[in-house]
């Protein structure tokens, strides 16, 4: 993280003096959808392929995710840190999802054949609500933005993983944890 100086403009009350936001205010879905649409179009104009677009969306989602982690942990869990893999996944599936999208994700599943991979599944991603992907964009899924949010939160919580969005049972976010995470989690269980 690079440091920035904020000295020239001295606001009357620093933002640090404000109390923690309760997270209850809302904007209209139409307004968010149009902002997201502009974001997608902006990213699209700077890349050439579908995978690049998904990466760009994920990068922007990561910006959002990094700023949500501490806020959510402080506000929703009184600062309690999750150390177990399943707990952090449940935190994402329920608390994070409820806070960002108004409801929990539909399912959390473990891959049958791979102990590093988990799936978070929702029937309809909020960001995709009004998006119809044209045929020439193949399997583009704009929920890569959400995947970026999840990946950033997991990484900030100490569970680095790669998260990607797929068209399966609605939208499935495939979460692939680093080997070290799985090893550490197993050691925790054995204790």
């Amino acid at each position: 993280m690079t440091s920035i100086t904020i000295s020239a403009v001295r606001p009357r009350t620093s933002i640090l003096d404000k109390s923690l936001s309760k997270g209850k205010s809302e904007v209209s879905l139409s307004c968010y959808a149009l902002l997201f649409s502009e974001l997608v179009q902006y990213c699209q104009n700077r890349v050439y392929t579908v995978p690049e677009l998904q990466n760009k969306l994920a990068e922007m989602g990561a910006e959002v995710g990094h700023r949500m982690t501490d806020l959510l942990v402080m506000r929703e869990k009184s600062g309690k840190r999750e150390v177990k893999l399943l707990s952090v996944l449940l935190f994402i599936k329920s608390t994070v999802w409820k806070s960002l999208f108004g409801r929990e994700a539909d399912k959390l599943e473990h891959a049958n054949d791979d102990d590093r991979t988990y799936y978070i599944i929702e029937k309809e991603a909020l960001v995709n609500k009004f998006v119809s992907v044209p045929k020439d964009k193949g399997s583009l899924n704009c929920a890569s933005f959400t995947a970026g949010i999840v990946e950033a939160i997991l990484s900030d919580c100490g569970f680095p993983a790669k998260v990607t969005a797929h068209w399966h049972k609605g939208t499935t976010y495939m979460v692939k944890f680093d080997h070290a995470v799985i090893t550490r989690d197993k050691q925790l269980e054995d204790r």
Binding site: L34, S37, F130, S132, P134, K137
Partner: peptide, 22 residues
């Protein structure tokens, strides 16, 4: 139209509407 055509990032105004959700 205001929802599924205009909020679709892949639809440009005045073009033929080819949005599946619409």
């Amino acid at each position: 139209y205001a929802d599924y055509a205009l909020k679709n990032p892949f639809y440009s105004l005045e073009m033929p509407i080819r949005c599946e959700l619409f």
